[in-house]
Amino acid sequence: MKLHYSHPLLVDNNQKMKNVFKEGAISSEFIGESIKKHQSKTSIGAHNIFLGQVRADAIDGKMVSAIEYSAYVEMANQKFHDIREAAFEKFELSCSHIYHSIGKVGVGEICLFVFVSAPHRKVVFEAIEFIVEQIKKEAPVFGKELFEDNTHVWKVNK
């Protein structure tokens, strides 16, 4: 079964857990392609997209140049799966997708791509916020903020 389309009624629970992680930055081409793939799903009337971008934070007078993400991949994929399932239960969605970077992502590049679609617009605003907040709070993903002088600090979500 192709894993791309993931309405809960069509998901076989025995299927292999979807891998949310993408090595490095998420390209604008990939995001554009994802939008294009949904044009054949004509019951959809509204999409909403959240893009997390690596910010050039100043910490103790030094500028962050990149974040290197690592994760407890198996647990994180299970958690992302659970978050999507919870979103389908709470909101009337047609589909939802999450992609998160692993490895090094430079400032200005995209590290998180959340994409939700529904027949009507109202739920997509709520659903995207729900999913993003859950990811920040619950996904075992770790980030090392790298500075240009090769030092680093560990990022903590607020």
């Binding site: 974040i67 647990m75 920040k136 996904a139 075992p140 993903v141 770790f142 903590v156």
Partner: peptide, 10 residues
């Protein structure tokens, strides 16, 4: 058993 420091995803 996994020791997980504060999360920083997103």
């Amino acid at each position: 058993i996994a020791l997980l420091p504060p999360f920083a995803g997103g």
